[in-house]
Design a protein around this nucleic acid. Structure first.
Length: 157
DNA sequence: GCCAACGTTGGC
DNA sequence: GCCAACGTTGGC
């Protein structure tokens, strides 16, 4: 049974289209430096899980389409070891990595984006984490019923 | 272990 | 650009 997730990205930094244009239409979800998000990726996410790709910090925040977890499990985030990277972490070692990430693959665009405004107007989505104000977690678990409803709203079955 | 200060997120 | 909410840091 796949699980469902919502993953936030700023489109100026890494958009849904960017994911599509990557080699193999897949990319490591690196650069996450939040322990809760790390733990979800490291301990919960499995190959085949489906992901709502969400654009944040932009004119129309919302879900753009579907992605999926393509790595078998989480791997150490290579940017933590890279001194030239803005995500370099001097306290991380190869023997004891601090940050983990999964690989995400492009799956399918929505016919129309499901905006945060639309999510907030939909009674069936009342309990979604992304609706909660002050919810900053960039990797969020999504209930199956909510996932299916978002897909319907996006014009994808 | 507390908690104030600070930095970041992210909608608006 | 504002600012509320939240996470992290570091002195004690």
């Amino acid at each position: 049974m796949p699980q469902y997730w919502l993953m936030k990205s700023e489109p100026d930094v890494f958009s849904f289209e960017d994911l599509k244009s990557r080699p193999g239409s897949a990319s490591l979800w690196d650069g996450v430096r939040n322990y809760q998000a790390r733990n979800l990726m490291r301990d919960q996410m499995k190959k085949g899980d489906l992901v709502l790709f969400y654009h944040s910090s932009c004119a129309e925040p919302g879900v753009q389409g579907l992605a999926e977890v393509v790595s078998e499990k989480a791997v150490p985030d290579p940017t933590q070891f890279d001194e030239a990277s803005e995500y370099f972490d001097p306290k991380a070692t190869k023997e004891a990595p601090r940050w983990f990430c999964v690989k995400i693959g492009y799956r399918e665009p929505f016919r129309q984006a499901v905006t945060l405004a639309a999510i907030k107007e939909e009674a069936a989505l009342e309990d979604m984490l992304v609706r909660k104000r002050g919810q900053r977690l960039s990797v969020q678990p999504v209930e199956a019923v909510h996932f299916r409803r978002i897909c319907e709203m996006g014009g994808v079955s």
